[in-house]
Nucleic acid binder design. Structure first.
Lengths: 331, 331
DNA sequence: GAGATTCTTGCAAACGTTTGTAGTCAGACC
DNA sequence: GGTCTGACTACAAACGTTTGCAAGAATCTC
């Protein structure tokens, strides 16, 4: 039924091994022969069977992309970029959604292991040691997780959080709250550390609220505590939470940014679309997706090197931050 | 290195073929033998090599998911649901992004053909005949495209558009515009036909504006024409466009919904997040993703049947629609 | 112009499974 | 007690590639 290398061999009058070489190791066959083979392949519409190739070479030409939640707006641009990069390198990508569950994440790596040359774990929820042990089974690259021995792509969210707090301090805020996300995420720790550090330098204490689910609901849930705390500004773990927080605050009669400045993290499209448009930390997700794939491909290649790339983030000031009200500052 | 069926055979003291059968055709081996084999497999951490299995059975256990733009908020929930459904059926999914290019779509089907048992084309940009010819090469399911001979999942966007127009008519609008999307999309035609039909019944003429790119920019671009047309209400091809349109209208000093009611299509999260929250036609995308996978799996199965499933849509009324201003109606 | 290289190609084994065929064994049947 | 049946298992070929090895042809070297 399907046309195989054998058919091509017959039509072009050479042995299958010659066809194979003509296709994958051009310099090993005489140019004229190669031309004949290619012509035959083209004429027959031959496409190599990657499963057979994989069996023989032990390389599948496939990559895995494992994320916590495809529908979370943070991920799609990353997936898109990673997929495009992989395709440019002639790799296909499997995608899998863990539904935020560490156990599923682990199981997915196992079940993919024989089908891919390596996998990218985006913002993994697993423990460091679990990831390290998976990495022995399959070449892995992590995004937004620092792990010795495992190549990673880090977006410098700490620097972004620092800029965000500096921005708030510069506006005159002295009562700043931090609504944190899931304890397990690497970004949570980075944000807290950086925000705390810069606030310290200015003799300001940041109130931490949370942890919360990294969703709009999580943000809403934190809103009352934020308002009650008397904070005039708040930095949220991500845009979704910032958005939920701002919405809930509005319902409580608190004006954003008049009474409360809100800063998010991610710069998802949400940030531009919401009203007021969200001041947020831009994450270079597309770049991260590309880098992750490149790193993985390097790690997988014969003389595979392993490294970590760090990407810069930047604060994007929009309409959800403003100086605190005089009376607030006085009270 | 990796543990194969051969290792399992050695440890459990049987032939490889027995191991194979113990794993895939339980009734063909004696229960005790099977238990021994399973124990050995478990102990060794054996995982079947799917490439080898694929070579032998000619079934890969993989599915392809091809979409125009992963980052367009319409797709991720569909991808998520499809992926989950596939996983529940023990299939893995390849994902690919065509960047809205028909040629890429075609090439992707070709390059996936040998690696998957079938593919889902979501809102394809190809012509009917191109899809039909691809369908001979590989079992295909289309989403939001009607094509004889190719199973499909259709979201009844026509009914949704009809409800939307009825809603606007009910509010008292008589000057209604339709901002259409890409001419190639099936949904474009459906919306136009349905909207035109119901308006006709009420003796109202709908002004068609476009076609435009199905993006925020496309919506912005159409805004001036909409405003100039004197329409008091507008139905946009999708939420992104509705959103861009509303934003641009606001910039032009046109109040939404006071001066102009805006209705979108998709009910992406964007609709809930924007201000004013968008009245829009809800599309059952998760359901569509699941159905598409089920349909594909049916088509691929031995006695494969082929069918079309149609899913209902529903108008969701939010804050972007209101009765027309008196003076407008009078003018 | 003979030996040494280098090219070019064919042969056959291997990758890890599945599966058709055939063999063994125990029990049933008469 | 011999034959038949059915349950169970081993054998070996096949799936479509790649690749080490070897052989023959062509080219080079002196």
């Amino acid at each position: 039924m399907a046309v195989t290398i054998r058919d091509v061999a017959r039509v072009s009058g050479v042995h299958v091994s010659t066809v194979s070489r003509a296709l994958t190791a051009a310099h090993l066959v005489k140019p004229e022969t190669r031309a004949r083979v290619l012509a035959a392949a083209d004429q027959l519409g031959y496409r190599p069977n990657r499963a057979a190739r994989a069996l023989s070479t032990r390389r599948t030409g496939n990559l895995g992309l494992i994320v916590a939640d495809i529908a979370n707006p943070f991920f799609p641009p990353l997936l898109k970029a990673a997929q495009a990069q992989a395709r440019a390198r002639d790799y296909h990508v499997f995608i899998a959604d863990t539904d935020e569950q560490a156990r599923v994440e682990e199981e997915l790596v196992h079940s993919m292991a024989k089908q891919v040359d390596g996998a990218v774990l985006v913002a993994p929820r697993l423990t460091d040691s679990a990831i390290a042990s998976l990495a022995e089974e399959l070449p892995l690259v992590v995004v937004n997780r620092r792990l010795r021995g495992v190549p990673g792509v880090l977006m410098d969210v700490g620097a972004g959080a620092r800029s965000a707090v500096e921005h708030l301090l510069g506006l005159g805020h002295r009562e700043i709250a931090l609504v944190s996300g899931p304890g397990r995420a690497w970004t949570s720790g980075e944000i807290e550390r950086a925000a705390g550090g810069i606030a310290d330098e200015h003799g300001v204490l940041i109130q931490r609220i949370g942890p919360n689910a990294p969703t709009e609901e999580g943000g809403r849930a934190a809103a009352e505590e934020v308002v009650a705390s008397g904070a005039t500004a708040v930095l949220a773990h991500n845009d979704l939470m910032a958005f939920g927080l701002a919405r809930r605050a509005a319902e409580l009669g608190v004006d954003v940014p008049g009474d409360l400045s809100v800063v998010g993290v991610d710069d998802s499209h949400l940030a531009r679309y919401s009203t007021p448009a969200l001041t947020t930390v831009n994450m270079p997700v597309a770049e991260a997706g590309r880098s992750a794939v490149d790193l993985l491909l390097q790690a997988v290649a014969p003389g595979g090197s392993t490294g970590t790339v760090s990407l810069e983030t930047a604060l994007v000031v929009r309409d959800s931050t403003a100086p605190p009200r005089r009376d607030d500052a006085a009270g």
